[in-house]
Protein backbone atom coordinates (compact mmCIF):
# COMPACT_ATOMS: atom_id res chain seq x y z
CA UNK A 1 0.00 0.00 0.00
CA UNK A 2 1.96 2.99 -1.25
CA UNK A 3 1.00 6.46 -2.37
CA UNK A 4 2.77 9.16 -4.34
CA UNK A 5 2.44 12.93 -4.08
CA UNK A 6 1.04 14.52 -7.24
CA UNK A 7 1.88 18.15 -6.48
CA UNK A 8 4.84 19.49 -8.47
CA UNK A 9 6.96 20.59 -5.51
CA UNK A 10 5.51 19.70 -2.12
CA UNK A 11 7.45 21.37 0.68
CA UNK A 12 8.53 18.60 3.03
CA UNK A 13 10.58 20.71 5.44
CA UNK A 14 8.83 19.51 8.60
CA UNK A 15 8.67 16.09 10.22
CA UNK A 16 6.64 13.99 12.58
CA UNK A 17 8.26 11.14 14.52
CA UNK A 18 6.69 7.75 13.97
CA UNK A 19 7.98 5.28 16.56
CA UNK A 20 11.36 7.00 16.38
CA UNK A 21 11.51 7.37 12.58
CA UNK A 22 11.31 10.89 11.14
CA UNK A 23 8.54 11.20 8.55
CA UNK A 24 8.28 14.34 6.40
CA UNK A 25 4.92 15.97 5.78
CA UNK A 26 3.48 18.63 3.49
CA UNK A 27 1.19 21.55 4.32
CA UNK A 28 -2.37 20.31 4.73
CA UNK A 29 -1.30 16.76 5.68
CA UNK A 30 -3.03 14.91 8.42
CA UNK A 31 -1.03 12.39 10.44
CA UNK A 32 -2.74 9.66 8.39
CA UNK A 33 -1.76 11.31 5.10
CA UNK A 34 1.87 11.73 6.15
CA UNK A 35 2.13 8.09 7.28
CA UNK A 36 0.45 6.71 4.15
CA UNK A 37 2.73 8.85 1.96
CA UNK A 38 5.66 7.27 3.81
CA UNK A 39 4.39 3.75 3.11
CA UNK A 40 3.22 2.91 6.63
CA UNK A 41 0.70 0.09 6.17
CA UNK A 42 -0.44 -0.72 9.72
CA UNK A 43 -1.73 2.00 12.04
CA UNK A 44 -2.92 -0.17 14.89
CA UNK A 45 -3.71 -3.73 15.92
CA UNK A 46 -7.19 -4.45 17.17
CA UNK A 47 -8.04 -5.06 20.86
CA UNK A 48 -10.02 -8.24 20.14
CA UNK A 49 -7.95 -10.34 17.70
CA UNK A 50 -4.81 -8.26 17.22
CA UNK A 51 -5.53 -7.87 13.49
CA UNK A 52 -3.69 -5.07 11.66
CA UNK A 53 -5.72 -2.03 10.63
CA UNK A 54 -5.18 1.12 8.61
CA UNK A 55 -7.43 4.09 7.80
CA UNK A 56 -10.72 3.16 6.14
CA UNK A 57 -12.94 6.26 5.77
CA UNK A 58 -10.33 9.07 6.09
CA UNK A 59 -13.05 11.47 7.31
CA UNK A 60 -13.30 10.82 11.03
CA UNK A 61 -16.26 8.47 10.92
CA UNK A 62 -14.90 4.91 11.26
CA UNK A 63 -12.27 5.35 14.03
CA UNK A 64 -10.11 2.64 12.46
CA UNK A 65 -6.98 4.87 12.38
CA UNK A 66 -6.74 5.33 16.17
CA UNK A 67 -3.14 5.98 17.28
CA UNK A 68 -1.19 7.30 20.22
CA UNK A 69 -0.31 10.89 19.35
CA UNK A 70 1.91 12.97 21.64
CA UNK A 71 1.18 10.52 24.43
CA UNK A 72 -2.61 10.66 24.05
CA UNK A 73 -4.38 7.39 23.27
CA UNK A 74 -7.16 6.84 20.77
CA UNK A 75 -6.56 9.83 18.49
CA UNK A 76 -7.87 9.67 14.95
CA UNK A 77 -4.84 10.01 12.65
CA UNK A 78 -7.11 11.08 9.77
CA UNK A 79 -8.47 14.08 11.70
CA UNK A 80 -5.23 15.22 13.34
CA UNK A 81 -3.21 17.78 11.36
CA UNK A 82 0.49 16.87 11.30
CA UNK A 83 2.70 19.30 13.19
CA UNK A 84 6.44 19.58 13.49
CA UNK A 85 7.96 17.24 16.08
CA UNK A 86 4.69 15.39 16.77
CA UNK A 87 5.26 11.91 18.25
CA UNK A 88 3.09 9.18 16.75
CA UNK A 89 2.88 5.52 17.74
CA UNK A 90 0.72 2.57 16.71
CA UNK A 91 -2.02 1.52 19.09
CA UNK A 92 -1.31 -2.11 19.90
CA UNK A 93 -4.20 -4.30 21.02
CA UNK A 94 -6.20 -3.21 24.06
CA UNK A 95 -5.03 0.06 25.57
CA UNK A 96 -3.63 -0.16 29.11
CA UNK A 97 -5.86 1.19 31.84
CA UNK A 98 -4.58 4.06 33.93
CA UNK A 99 -2.39 5.65 31.26
CA UNK A 100 -5.05 7.44 29.31
CA UNK A 101 -4.75 11.11 28.70
CA UNK A 102 -5.91 13.54 26.08
CA UNK A 103 -4.19 16.87 25.57
Amino acid sequence: MRFRRIDPAPSLAHQIHFEGTPIPFAEGDTVAGALLAAGIGTFRTTPVTGAPRAPYCLMGSCFDCLMRIDGAENRRACMTPASNGMRVERARGPRPAGEERMP
Binding site: R4, I6, G33, L36, A37, A54, Y56, C57, L58, M59
Partner: peptide
Protein backbone atom coordinates in the same frame (compact mmCIF):
# COMPACT_ATOMS: atom_id res chain seq x y z
CA UNK B 1 -5.12 -2.52 5.51
CA UNK B 2 -5.15 -1.23 1.94
CA UNK B 3 -8.94 -1.40 1.73
CA UNK B 4 -10.55 2.01 2.13
CA UNK B 5 -13.70 3.67 0.92
CA UNK B 6 -13.39 5.19 -2.55
CA UNK B 7 -14.39 8.47 -0.95
CA UNK B 8 -11.52 8.09 1.51
CA UNK B 9 -9.06 7.72 -1.37
CA UNK B 10 -10.57 10.81 -2.94
CA UNK B 11 -10.15 12.76 0.31
CA UNK B 12 -6.44 11.83 0.30
CA UNK B 13 -6.22 13.20 -3.25
CA UNK B 14 -8.02 16.45 -2.35
CA UNK B 15 -6.46 17.10 1.04
CA UNK B 16 -2.95 15.69 0.72
CA UNK B 17 -2.47 15.33 -3.04
CA UNK B 18 -1.89 11.57 -2.64
CA UNK B 19 -2.48 9.05 -5.41
CA UNK B 20 -2.33 5.29 -4.79
CA UNK B 21 0.59 3.43 -6.37
Amino acid sequence: PGVTTAGGLQILLKREGLLPE
